[in-house]
Amino acid sequence: MFDELLSDLKAKFPSVSIELDKREVGDSVLIVDAASLFEVSQYLKESTRWDFNVLQVITGHDLPPDFIAVTYILASYRQNSELLLRVKLGRQNPKVKSVVPLWPAANFQERECYDMLGVQFEGHPDLRRILCPEDWEGFPLRKDYKAAESYNGMEIYPQEKLNLADRQFGKKGQKSVEVTETVE
């Protein structure tokens, strides 16, 4: 299916760079230019041949130092097929056009992707954080993310509440830490 899809897309969008990332195990991924993502997805949704009528999920992952990849997982319930469509964005200022006009499902999914990785979806009706509080700082799923020391005056990981014995359990070369503190 992928080869046909690739040749069809290349014929339809001759100026766009589209490549297929084929792996020995697991699924293959179609990588397209971020600038033409909207047009390609629109074609995939509306053409009767491919008919990807459902957007399953939008997910992203961090590829330091240069990229953030955003993956759109599309499914067709009439053709019984699925497709992983990926764009690679610059890590400094990740920006891509929102696909909410095509699939309303993208509304929450893009908000989650923004919340976790800081990807800006242009044209999204309501791009706010969704799982983290609105005043949260940083994007947790980036690989270089470090949790702040405190949030709204509350200490994160207070020393007296850390279960050190548990953390050291099973680590090589270290015997379990003796807990000397007495609990009243």
Partner: peptide, 9 residues
């Protein structure tokens, strides 16, 4: 796991 990715429903 070998390098690669999978989406399974």
């Amino acid at each position: 796991l070998p390098p690669g990715e999978i989406y399974h429903r």
